[in-house]
């Protein structure tokens, strides 16, 4: 009886320790999934940019056709590329979440495989291709039993470089290229509407309407730009903190780890709130 009691206490302690140790990772994964998930709510994409630019050109030329004929296939390809980067990160954090909550039966094993298959591998050079493959492999291993809950640190350490490469590439594309398209679009509007103000055939009312339209378009783009900026901050923050935790070799059951994860969660909450505000 005494032995049974001692074993029961031991078992309860082990369970308590493992639950405590996994909770911060679970929390971090939840925050990361929420944060990176804001990507789906972006009100702008390469394809949208192409369609808007094409429509604007037709308006400028007063060109009416039965259908809007715009060839934006390559812009769709760019969106696919971006979406696959997003999916690779989401799958990784999903794997980490499932692993930390030991709820691995619910994990959809087909997703990393689909992400790998649909990624346009021809377009990616070695570094990114390797990052995609590794991150997907690690996600699969995590849920097929090669990793156990006490191996989360190893898992995170192995995935760290790859999640950084993909995060860097994704934020680069969002910051420089997607936001860059917004800047080009704005100069297009500026040139068009300002040109109208020099048109001798238009009266003052027409010119005032053109001015009004221009500033409304600018305002709309400002919101889009802010959304992209917040998303970039979220992805950067998550990637950096993941790296810092791995670098520091912080024990996943230590008070320091919990404290750090708590801080990251608060930062992410703030950014998430900023993003929500932008939608209003």
């Amino acid at each position: 009886m005494h032995l049974f009691f001692r074993n029961a206490v031991y078992l309860a302690s082990v369970l308590a320790i493992s639950c405590t140790s996994l909770k911060p990772v679970q929390d971090l994964s939840t925050e990361a999934l929420d944060g990176i998930g804001q990507f789906r709510e972006l009100d702008y994409s390469f394809h949208t940019s192409c369609i808007e630019d094409c429509t604007f050109s037709k308006i400028s030329e007063v060109e009416i056709e039965r259908k809007l004929n715009c060839s934006c296939e390559s812009y769709q390809l760019a969106d696919d590329q971006v979406y696959n980067m997003y999916l690779a990160l989401i799958d990784y954090w999903e794997g980490l979440y499932q692993l930390s909550s030991m709820n691995i039966n619910q994990y959809n094993l087909s997703r990393p495989t689909v992400a790998l298959r649909t990624t346009n591998l021809i377009q990616l050079k070695d570094e990114h291709l390797l990052a995609f493959q590794k991150l997907s492999e690690i996600s699969l291993k995590a849920v097929t039993g090669q990793y156990r809950k006490n191996k989360i640190k190893t898992y995170m350490a192995e995935a760290d470089t790859y999640q950084q490469i993909i995060s860097d590439k994704l934020t680069f594309v969002l910051r420089e290229n997607l936001s860059g398209l917004l800047a080009i679009q704005e100069e297009g509007w500026y040139a068009y509407y300002k040109t109208l103000t020099y048109d001798p055939t238009l009266n003052t009312v027409d010119k005032a309407l053109a001015t009004d339209k221009y500033y409304k378009l600018l305002e709309n783009n400002k919101t889009r730009n802010n959304q992209i900026t917040v998303l970039i901050e979220v992805i950067d923050l998550i990637s950096q903190k993941h790296h810092q935790l791995v670098e520091a070799g912080t024990k996943s059951n230590s008070a320091g780890f919990r404290e750090e994860v708590g801080r990251i969660s608060r930062d992410l909450h703030t950014l998430h709130y900023a993003f929500e505000q932008l939608k209003k």
């Binding site: 590329q81 377009q123 594309v173 420089e176 080009i184 297009g188 040139a191």
Partner: peptide, 15 residues
């Protein structure tokens, strides 16, 4: 010129 800049942003994304 701006159209070219747009295409370059696309090209940069597609490598």
């Amino acid at each position: 010129l701006m159209k070219t800049a747009r295409e370059m942003k696309l090209l940069s994304t597609l490598i």
